[in-house]
Amino acid sequence: MTSIRPPAVAGTFYPDDPSELSAMIHYFLSQADDSLPAPKAVIVPHAGYIYSGPIAASAYAPLKKAADQIKRVVLIGPSHRVAFEGLAVSSADQFVTPLGAIPIDKQAVEAILHLPFVHLLDQAHSLEHSLEVQLPFLQSVLNDFKLVPIVAGDASAEQVSTVLEILWGKSETLIVISSDLSHYHDYFTAQQMDQNTSQLIESLHYEQLDFDSACGRVPVTGLLRYARQHGLKPKTIDLRNSGDTAGDKNRVVGYGAYVINQTTSEYSA
């Protein structure tokens, strides 16, 4: 019998009606610049769509041009509900959203399960929104793909980058890192903090990031460590906060969209 991970935050973080959800995502995508090259890796926010959806769309829109190429998505986000050490994968065969089911790349999961810090931990996935909110966007911009869902607990940048070394692949693989930025500061303080975080991300100074910089610091630092080791450079393509989208300016959450582009050789592989 097929084992599924059903949606946990449909109807709260995003619409649970498929038509409404699809329309919302396509509106966000239509407002984004899709002229950039399709990235190899992205960092995208994971709040409710009315708050962070437009910023996430900035990173997802360029991926439409690689819809036929990308066959696997490695998705890593922080754990909000379950405390554990290392990284957690799922035993599910499919992750389901209102837009349909996404098959899990079991072979890729097996390829990292031998690592001592990677655990099969369904509890970390069952209610986690940092991965789930990315799925309808991925379903909207890609065609047929398999998912490698990873929840990051108390893990190091080295551990995350080790997983990325195994799963990075070529043009068939997209890396998605889920993270918001600063939390619950006033608008102008958040702007300053998030601009500083973006500079650290672009300069690959991941050791200087903390949990006040980004709630997904663990997966973000792992990606940046990998990028530094392989001569890749992140680029900020959107930087806003909830005061710019759907909230007031007294207590905001920051959202950034960042891309790392592939090399020409990867595109031709």
Rank of each mutant, 00 (worst) to 15 (best):
D194I: 00
H205M: 09
R225W: 03
D244N: 14
L232P: 12
R240F: 01
L232W: 12
T236F: 02
D194K: 02
L224V: 08
R228P: 00
H205S: 13
E202N: 14
T197Q: 04
D210M: 02
L223T: 14
R228Y: 07
L209M: 03
Y206W: 11
L239H: 01
Y226P: 09
A227G: 11
A214D: 05
D210I: 03
Q208C: 03
T197K: 04
L232Y: 14
R240H: 06
P234Y: 02
E207Y: 02
L200H: 05
L232T: 12
P234K: 08
T197I: 04
D238P: 01
S198D: 04
L224K: 09
S242I: 06
K233G: 13
T221E: 11
P219G: 08
D238L: 04
H230Q: 10
G243W: 01
V220T: 15
G222D: 04
G243H: 07
D194P: 01
D244T: 03
S198N: 05
G222A: 06
A227E: 12
I237C: 13
L204R: 00
Y226H: 13
Q229Y: 02
D210N: 14
I237A: 10
D210Y: 02
M193I: 14
L209A: 06
G231W: 07
D212N: 14
A227H: 10
T221C: 15
L204S: 08
R240Q: 09
H230L: 09
D212R: 12
N241M: 07
G243K: 04
Y226A: 10
P219F: 02
T197W: 01
V220P: 05
G216A: 08
L204I: 08
D210P: 05
T221Y: 06
R228Q: 13
E202Q: 15
Q191L: 01
L224C: 08
Q192T: 13
Q192L: 13
L204P: 08
P234S: 14
P234E: 07
H205D: 14
L209D: 05
G222T: 03
R217I: 14
D194V: 00
E207F: 03
S213E: 02
D238Y: 00
V218A: 06
L224T: 08
G243C: 08
N241W: 00
D238G: 11
K233V: 15
R217C: 13
C215V: 01
I201Y: 11
S242C: 10
Q195P: 00
